[in-house]
Amino acid sequence: MTGVRVQDLARGPGYGGLLHLVLMALSAASAGAQIPLTVEVRAGGVYSTPFARGIAVVPAELEAVARDLVVGPRPAPVAELALAARLDPSFALEFRSGASIADVAGEGGGDSWPAGRMTAVHILGGVRFPLSPLPGADVRAGAGKVLYLSSEVNLLEGSGQTGVLLSGGFGYRLPGPVPAIGVAEAQWHEFDPAALAEAGAAAGAVTRFLAWLALPVGGTP
């Protein structure tokens, strides 16, 4: 299984490479233009709404029920690396990429069952503005992409295709000696692979709620 999973991750090589290029370009640009850069490591948790919903009809002869089914990831830890470029005291650009490994579960009739494990890889570009009335607070928005990779989750095998990922959130500089920032974020994307519709299931859209603790680990003054 290990070999298969390595292959899974290799399906999204373009994104990691792209982030690397963006970071290099930003570093070079900031060195030339004296733009302060911050590198942040972020860790937190993610809760996602279900990937798909459907109905199971158990024949009248047996039970005569129509049971609602859902499948989606369980809450999971998430980590990412972010690079922020403060272009102006009241405006910063940020690029970020990270991943989470989550168990996926099916649910129906008051019961739930394991449906495999997946890796979610995300990459986003966005902006941050200080929230002037509240010192240390900021508001953030961004767009990007999330990829769901798995060789175990039936739903994601060969598909797992998502639309553009939109993101919005708040950051707040936590009091204390460590310059940590707490971030609350909501992400939203379309999720409707053809395979789903063919299988008599639908999702339409998925919302991910994330809570982060961000630690600046480097940068330029």
């Binding site: 919903r53 109905i55 939109l166 299931a201 339409g204």
Partner: peptide
């Protein structure tokens, strides 16, 4: 961003019948 999040929360895609 808030509108997007609310739209997502209220989204109820039609489930194709089997």
């Amino acid at each position: 961003a808030v509108v997007a999040a609310l739209a997502a929360a209220c989204d109820s895609a039609t489930i194709p019948a089997l």
